[in-house]
Amino acid sequence: MKISFTLIAAIVGFMIAIQFQTVKKPVERDTRDIWQLREALLKEKELQSKLLMEIRPIDEKLAAYDSKRTQSKEQALRDTFQELKVEAGLTEVTGPGITLVIEPVMEDIQLGSPRAKTVSPDLLQRLRNELNMYEAKYTAIDGQRLINTSVIRDINNETKIDGHTIRDLPIEVKVVTDDINTAEKLYNRMKVSKSRDEFFTESLRLNISSPSPTITIPAYVNPIRVRYMEPVTEGGGS
């Protein structure tokens, strides 16, 4: 009986000791004087300079790799790809340009004639051609980017741009040009263009805002299908 009691007492004591040690936080007081502290500081500084020395060659290596990468073929290909993407209209574009707002003519409504609900595709097509004629670079109608293959047509009495129905009037047409001077020119030309008269005959008014340095045009969202083009095979008899 005594043996088991003793054994269990020992186990309890052991557990208590461990618990005590776990709970008790070791309090270590810093008793170093100023010279010892300086010594420690010096040691740390040496370590720091050593680490810096180690970092330097690695940094150099990194820079070397970087420059190698920028000069490589891959980078050139990437740049070309990006350029093509911009040209095809797959990226968002911000630049100087003007905003045109197409809205119904309010005076007309008072006369009792039905209010124009949409813009006819022909009208938009003419506007687009006119804008392109006056050196517009990127165009978006009602937030829909126009690219080379964009179609504006009438489907079931709704004007659609690449399958996207344009909203009710007023709608916004954003145009971005190469620079602010071209934007200015475009603005002046649009102000006296025939388009305005054409719009007015359909009870629509074309408001032209003065040039702004930052007009943002969204990217073209639909996939571009290439149907009648094929890559040239190298060494082919073309």
């Binding site: 004591g13 052991f14 000791a17």
Partner: peptide, 8 residues
């Protein structure tokens, strides 16, 4: 036994 356990 208890003391031995604690010491240990």
């Amino acid at each position: 036994g208890l003391i031995i356990g604690i010491m240990l």
